[in-house]
Design a binder for these strands. Structure first.
Lengths: 349, 349
DNA sequence: CATCGAAGAAAAAACGTTTTCCCAATCCGA
DNA sequence: TCGGATTGGGAAAACGTTTTTTCTTCGATG
């Protein structure tokens, strides 16, 4: 019936302040502060003594008192509508890891597409005086269901719609798609199809464009053009079944899928239909969602969007902004990385 | 080359303090504070006037100044080693949603099993003076790679090992397993197998126990006992292939799987081998990881651990602790919920 | 008429830091 | 020995709140 954080546990547990340190070290508060922060001038042994005393007392500076005077809270907010976390979690991890080393902590504000909750979270972040905001979404052509009035703090966006005068980070879908297709070509494939999500997604259009460019650049046929559907495994499966109905001569020998789920469904259908992957058909996915990519038979070669890195860079850029450094506005497209597993067969050299 | 949060944007954007409000309303700071916080006595129109002024100025109280004096930061920390987020993300969402309404924000501290980073995060949380800590893990029989010295703040645990004198929240694996098996029985199944993860997981042992109890309670055979393996789809697939080698009379007609991935692999193997699910064999999973459960053919009936609710309750309990309310220590096992889809066939009444 | 009470509002202390002065001592060269 | 620089350290203001205490009024009571 008790809590385990007794106030009076040991001499050191009751919040020790810099005043306690100063008194114990026989110096003034100002000197103690300067000693601990490597500021001002004083004898080196004085500085060390104060530090030793602070350590032995278990002193931890109160970040809020510090924030109050320095006008920097060393916190930032991560606002996202991706509660499921497919995209946001890697971003958050990258962000958090990059910032913790600089003493900055991250408030997680996840909300469904519920404008009211979003507003509450936003207000909360303002009251908590975060130094900046990272806005993360789940598609690059949508903003959050909340309009940001002119905020008193810098903002960067990740995997979200971004105006020209804002600063955003997205994966380079176009180049990622190209590299996927080029990998198929390097594996000796000549008839390369593209099966992907709904055209309403900008990412879909970009990836389709990348496919088109790479295929045309190699002087290969565009077959029937991109096959648009939804993001599901079921669509991939259905597409696979459709492919099976084609005469072998018209069948593609390589497929670039818009995401890993589609690829998964496609491979399942092909395998069930007696078409071997990668012997008969090579498949490349998109997302590198490992739980899928590693579980397909064979494991899936796919494009990793580098979400972790996206988060990291967003964090560092936000810190620059906070520090008042000039940052060119606009959206940065970070390189994707092809993760080669075994769904494409012969490795190119 | 500029940041979009110009300091001097409009009259209201340069941080407005309570002093500004007081001056604009022609009262003292003390009066302004009382008006805004519904404290003290004053003419009702004075109160309203102050509030109107505050609103028109866009006043937002500085949470850190407030925290400094009230000794409550209205923040808590979520420490987790589950950077992948399979378990933590739903917990975080539930936690965050429950707390935001009470004005409490959540710091996300995710680290790999890297003790040093964990320590940095922990120290950061202490300096930020969080009111409490939620420790979330990815298995119920492991703590975090960090020993918590007697912390000056209350702690609750979620999906993590928990000493008797601590407060923890975990799903009721035993009962969840029982309900899964009972569902199979209600669907008319008599030979119910259990295919699950490694015995080193406590969750595995609990689920196996639930399976055993429910099967025995119904007077049914335990067959060959639980089949332990790993959590992968590949293991489920291999198990399915093994089942196919059995003579039909010895084959189970219902399988309770330790997680959804195993179930997925199992169903794939059975389907490929010509055994129909659910007509010939019913399958129940565990986790309700929707991206799997909904993608299996047929969609998977599975046990939902209620991670969201776990997070919610943990948050509310932590708040009680912070408020000094007495809370009985120990671990709470929250009910799981069977999500019925179509992998078991005939719905029980 | 003097006093009392209460209502309304202000003054000031406190929270725990950082930082800007400022002061006293020591040192150096002349 | 004197004047100025340098060195080591302290006093106090500031950050933006809440809260306790004190101070006016003003009307009512004895």
């Amino acid at each position: 019936m008790v809590s385990d954080h007794d106030e009076m546990s040991d001499s050191d547990s009751a919040r020790v302040t810099i005043k306690d340190v100063a008194r114990a070290a026989g110096v003034s508060i100002a000197t103690a502060s300067k000693a601990l922060n490597d500021r001002g001038r004083m004898m080196v042994e004085t500085r060390q003594r104060i530090r030793d005393v602070a350590a032995s007392l278990g002193f931890m500076p109160n970040a809020m008192a510090r924030a109050l005077v320095s006008q920097r809270s060393f916190t930032i907010g991560l606002l996202t509508n991706d509660t499921y976390g497919r995209f946001t979690l890697p971003v958050a991890a990258g962000l958090s890891e990059a910032l913790i080393d600089r003493g900055v902590s991250v408030f997680l504000c996840a909300f469904e597409d519920d404008a009211e909750r979003a507003a509450i979270n936003l207000r909360s972040m303002q009251e908590k005086r975060v130094d900046g905001l990272v806005i993360a979404g789940k598609r690059i052509d949508r903003g959050l269901p909340i309009d940001l009035p002119r905020l008193p703090m810098p903002v960067v966006r990740v995997y979200s719609l971004c105006r020209d005068d804002e600063i955003g980070f997205v994966p380079d879908d176009l180049e990622g798609a190209r590299s996927a297709v080029n990998h198929l070509i390097a594996c000796g494939r000549r008839r390369i199809a593209h099966i992907t999500g709904p055209t309403s997604f900008h990412a879909v259009r970009l990836r389709a464009e990348g496919w088109t460019e790479a295929v045309e650049a190699a002087g290969l046929p565009l077959l029937a053009g991109p096959q648009f559907g939804d993001w599901s495994e079921a669509f991939g499966y259905a597409s696979g079944e459709r492919l099976l109905t084609l005469p072998a001569s018209e069948r593609p020998d390589g497929v670039f899928c818009g995401n890993d789920q589609i690829a998964r469904g496609l491979i399942d259908a092909l395998t069930l239909g007696g078409v071997r992957v990668p012997d008969d058909v090579s498949v490349v996915g998109f997302d590198n969602w490992e739980v899928f990519a590693k579980a397909t038979r064979p494991p899936l070669t796919t494009v990793d969007m580098g979400l972790n890195e996206l988060g990291r860079q967003a964090g560092l850029t936000l810190l620059d902004l906070v520090a008042g450094k000039p940052v060119v506005p606009g959206v940065r497209r970070l390189a994707c990385r092809l993760v080669v597993r075994s769904s494409c067969g012969t490795r190119p050299l």
